[in-house]
Amino acid sequence: MTNAMREPLAGYNFAYLDEQMKRSIRRAILKAVAVPGYQVPFGSREMPLPYGWGTGGIQVTASIIGAEDVLKVIDQGADDTTNAVSIRQFFARTTGVATTERTAEATIIQTRHRIPERPLGPGQIIVYQVPIPEPLRWVEARETETRKMHALQEYGVMHVKLYEDIARFGCINTSYNYPVLVNGRYLMAPSPIPKFDNPKMDRNPALQLFGAGREKRIYAVPPFTSVKSLDFEDYPFDVQHWDHCCALCGAADSYLDEVVTDDRGGRMFVCSDTDYCGERRTAGHVGAGTPVALAAEAAE
């Protein structure tokens, strides 16, 4: 699976950005690691792809990647989607480092919307692409005010959003970008990962870095730092559950995507983490395989 190192593209600096820029980003990262969950402003640069496609994550990755690193890029858990493929190719060409689709082999994992199912280990770094780094943006539009709220730890209003969920839907319906409290101090947006992945952030041995290119913010969760999802005493935090197992590998513990297979209501549930699913199938696990037909369910 791992593609070996090759010569980087001539005419570009290693990892596209110039060395001074990478240093300035690394300084921001150091500060972010020192103050877990705090959003550090940084001089975000124009990247050769549009805002919203992962410019923040790319700049973080570019500033920390070295010749010895092995890079994995995922988008919605998959290694083979357009965004993942193009970012992986971008780094393969501008740095020449080895790339992989294997979670276990990677030293740096850049991700959008998922944390891999396989537990991360010490020494690994996961880089999240973040569209909106400010978790309080929904309740307070002014940046000056949200900064003050962070400074004074005035986070009570965040529960107003959760209250609204319960009042409207009977449960906390927020399913992604679920707000967390880092190290008992800073409220943090975990980027649009499903809340299914929130527990994985807690005391994770890997270093977690977050980059928001358009909003020009970097924040971090150092290894083994507590990350607590907000909740109510009588409505505790809970993750998504499925009635199905993965149709391909039979996994019952992974985040499942619903895939529509035909125009007669046929659908199947498969792991969103393609590497995890592939590894399980190689190890001999088999799922039910056939699409779950809505029609068949209705007949029962």
Binding site: G156, H159, Y163
Partner: peptide
């Protein structure tokens, strides 16, 4: 409820 939540009430 906002003020209650602001002073730490966490029981829906």
């Amino acid at each position: 409820g906002e003020r209650l939540m602001a002073v730490g009430e966490r029981h829906y």
